[in-house]
């Protein structure tokens, strides 16, 4: 099991110009990283597990832009059909990280149904993701991150992290501003002719 912040530092070290959608507890941890968020970060607060759906829409609209989604396990469980929806559209620019803390931290740390016994990579592979990984050790994550990012996509990566056991303070606020900013930034990037 990893400390969430340490796991996210590994991700942050590989981050370049990807759009990043954060959700729930992962948003709080991401907001504590130093350096903090970039202008391509969007926190989708609430929305009952739809971070991956939002990321899919961006990925389909802009195949030239890599999209990372930092989902929660409780959030994914609210929207499990998304795995099949993503696999059907099969975006080659989409990586779906799942913050697997086996708990609903944002409501106080209650366990998710069947906590500790859910195999998210198996679900993703079963849905049709060509690549899926499970990581529960920071050093191992550091060693594998480049291979994980280079694997055929869409990719799911379950990050086994410790639950906070309580509600996190607010992270980056959900924002209409973020949506408008990223929309404008994407519009400024020339879209290659396919």
């Amino acid at each position: 099991m990893m400390d969430g912040i340490s796991a996210l530092r590994v991700l942050a070290s590989e981050r370049t110009d990807q759009v990043l959608i954060t959700h729930m507890t992962a948003n709080y941890d991401w907001s504590r990283l130093n350096p903090p968020a970039t202008e391509l970060d969007l926190h989708l607060g609430g929305a009952m597990g739809k971070a991956s759906s939002l990321g899919l829409g961006i990925a389909l609209a802009r195949p030239d832009v890599d999209v990372w989604v930092l989902d929660g396990d409780g959030s994914l469980l609210m929207n499990l059909g998304t795995l099949v929806t993503v696999a059907t559209s099969a975006p080659k620019n989409f990586i779906h990280f799942v913050y697997q803390n086996d708990a609903y931290d944002t409501t106080g740390g209650q366990p998710v149904p069947n906590a500790g016994h859910i195999d998210y990579p198996a679900m993703a592979k079963g849905a049709g993701y060509p690549s899926a990984f499970f990581v529960d050790n920071v050093e191992d994550f550091q060693n594998r991150i480049k291979a994980i990012l280079a694997a055929p996509r869409p990719t799911l990566v379950a990050l086994k992290v410790a639950s906070l056991g309580h509600r996190p303070p607010p992270g980056t606020p959900k924002g209409l501003d973020s949506m408008q900013r990223i929309t404008a930034l994407l519009a400024q990037r020339p879209e290659p002719r396919l």
Binding site: G57, L60, A61, L186
Partner: peptide
């Protein structure tokens, strides 16, 4: 929403 953000 994502499609709109991407200009579609």
């Amino acid at each position: 929403l994502g499609l709109l953000m991407g200009g579609k």
